[in-house]
Design a protein around this nucleic acid. Structure first.
Lengths: 224, 224
DNA sequence: ACAAAACCGTTGCAAATACAACAAATGGAG
DNA sequence: CTCCATTTGTTGTATTTGCAACGGTTTTGT
């Protein structure tokens, strides 16, 4: 099946592999390719998956269904995005989510054992592949931990301060830009937009910070 | 430095390695060992770490400090526990947390590059080591995602239903035991204990579920 | 068996939140 | 420039939550 190498090498899975090395590596990984119609289930809750999924085209949604059948979208995988990797590397761990094609999609499935067990064999590009996978897992981990540390705060104000403080530290400046608009920030912090907007303005009036759109400035100085 | 192999092989890092293979693997990894006094900083916020930490004895706390200096304990690493692995496998990612010895502690530091780059060399136990590390990262990932999916709910009731529904699915039964007491469950879901207790009883009175201590039973049937 | 500690449910109240509805500001497209 | 859609701020109200305090029950240590 034809897959542009220029596309693959930009994905998080093959970030450390060059375009010249890719054919050899793919030869070794023996991935399978499958096309899914819109609405078709790629992976079903309860399955024991051993392959990581890579979206080549289309769009896949990771969905969780609870005891009463309520659905909840956990992730939206676009072309180049990886999914099910946490399950694939945990043998015996059953899928708690389903992955559904939201559009007609082409998916690449790579057996996790092929990624790991042949490490000592001929294909020397495995090392970088493993580094990429581990890095990707670590990256997700940090993102989750960060979000969790904001959300564990009880009030909207505390959540905001936790998030903004983190952004400030990351930017290395008291003035910084955030990658969200108000609605997105509210969704990220899991609070009501209007209540959050309200709280932001209160904090501004109290002199804790100032902002213009997505531009924020935290004030460390103690006001008189 | 003397470290009982029987202890090491039980840690998540060396779970897949047998006691006989450990000396060879350790020879290859060349870990460093360090002792820390109570209160001493093991890793400092802002550093660029390339080694994963393993607590051999004592206790290490992962602490986050925000813009205004407020401290927040993110994790409590006991003997056998791994820390800083998410940062170690992301070159260039600066520590957003500090790790502090809460008691006199002995720590083992393993360079992440040694764990990955020598994959194709002589030491064939690397493969299983890499599997263990990836599995551990994936495990943490799932645990975080799970917790996040509960906490993203707005009300205490929804959080409880999300958590209990998940436990029920995991147990494969409508009746199941949870590993928390009320206070711990409240801490896990980041809500007030008494309010949560109140909500639980309301749901019981409404016929949604029943419980006795840590034993729960969800009712899917629609009551008349 | 006894005392102390831990755990759990309950209640009242002040504070924070979600929700809805609307006004003001902003930014593009025609 | 005007119209329209999007984004943001504002307000009021019903709900929900956090907090503090208390009593009853179970568990634990001695």
């Amino acid at each position: 099946m034809q897959v542009p190498l220029s596309f693959l090498k930009k994905t998080s899975l093959f970030r450390g592999t060059t375009e010249e090395e890719l054919p050899t590596l793919l030869d070794c990984l023996k991935p399978s390719y499958r096309d899914f119609a819109k609405g078709e289930i790629i992976l079903r809750q309860g399955e024991d998956v051993s392959a990581v999924g890579l979206v080549l085209s289309g769009r896949a949604q990771v969905i969780e269904e609870d005891f009463w059948g309520n659905r909840n979208i956990l992730a939206d995988a676009m072309p180049g995005d990886l999914f099910a990797e946490s399950y694939a590397f945990l043998p015996g761990e059953l899928l708690r989510v389903s992955v559904v094609a939201e559009e007609p999609s082409r998916i690449m499935l790579v057996d996790s054992r092929r990624m790991l067990e042949i490490c000592s064999s001929a294909c020397r590009f495995h090392t970088r592949l493993v580094q990429d996978v581990l890095a990707e897992s670590a990256r997700k981990n940090l993102a989750l931990t960060r979000k969790l540390s904001h959300m564990s705060k009880r009030t909207t104000r505390e959540k905001l301060l936790s998030y903004l403080s983190g952004q400030s530290l990351a930017a290395g400046s008291e003035t910084f830009e955030i990658p969200f608009n108000r609605q997105q920030l509210a969704d990220y912090l899991c609070v009501d937009r209007s209540a959050m907007s309200n709280e932001l303005c209160k904090m501004r009036d109290e002199g804790l910070l100032s902002f213009d759109r997505s531009n924020f400035h935290l004030k460390s100085e103690i006001e008189v």
